[in-house]
Design a protein around this nucleic acid. Structure first.
Lengths: 135, 135
DNA sequence: ATCATTGCAAACACTTTGCATACGC
DNA sequence: GCGTATGCAAAGTGTTTGCAATGAT
């Protein structure tokens, strides 16, 4: 986990044990988890963990541009480490989320001149191969 | 409002007065309102309106594919009538939402073969011209 | 000793649910 | 009168807040 400490430090985040665990989870599981999922996953390793700390940490990661919030249905915020831009596909039946190898299109120059674009998200919704069968 | 009745009927929605008012609001205001905003706006015309009815109606519209839910920050669901696909830009400072004349890219054929894509959303976040100045 | 980090409990905001009332044909 | 539409109040869910406790240097 030593290398993760360095990463956190490079984002100006003090690498506490809790933060490392959360970072590791995001890094290794890569499933766009909700705060709840992260909380439950890490409870096994760190039974004293509180949900507040998970939220604190995720806010911190977002603020420092290490992670990004992604909004999907059902009013649950999910989190993803910032890597290269990509799209998400969410199955309307089983709620699974799939990464799609497609980049959000660049916004046109005229718009860019007046606005500052920090982040782009591309979300597709529909039915995954499994759920498609049952329709 | 006669023509609106026809539209609702064509989506297999019984055009009650309440539903017409909500449809009209979505149609004429076009600002991707939240349920709360719709509720407050229509209260003036229909003081007995309840928020439950607003939610009922929005769910009905969504189910019948007349409207679509769009998810943004802050865990608030916004609603938009389904027109042609377009993108949204949300100011991270003032929270205003701007329509962007750009289409979500078509998902590639290989993906399409296995999945059913019902809906695409493209969301940009950043700072609008007004808020840009104050940074 | 000081400052940062964590955690609890309560508050909050948005949405849904269950059921009762009212409305339209 | 029967089925649909509406509305109230309560519950539910995810998130935030205030503050106290703990930890690190």
């Amino acid at each position: 986990m030593q290398q993760y400490s360095e990463i956190l430090r490079s984002y100006d985040i003090n690498p506490s044990y809790t933060r490392l665990l959360i970072y590791q989870y995001l890094k290794e599981v890569r499933s766009h988890p909700t705060a709840e999922e992260i909380y439950r996953a890490i409870l096994g390793t760190l039974p004293t963990l509180s949900k507040t700390t998970v939220y604190n940490t995720l806010h911190l990661f977002t603020e420092k541009h290490l992670a990004t919030m992604i909004m999907m249905d059902e009013n649950e915020t999910r989190y993803d480490l910032i890597t290269k831009p990509h799209a998400h596909f969410k199955c309307m039946n089983c709620s699974k989320i799939f990464d799609v190898a497609i980049e959000p299109p660049a916004i046109d120059a005229a718009f860019l001149k007046d606005y500052i674009v920090e982040d782009a998200q591309l979300l597709y919704r529909g039915f995954c191969p499994e759920c498609k069968k049952t329709l």
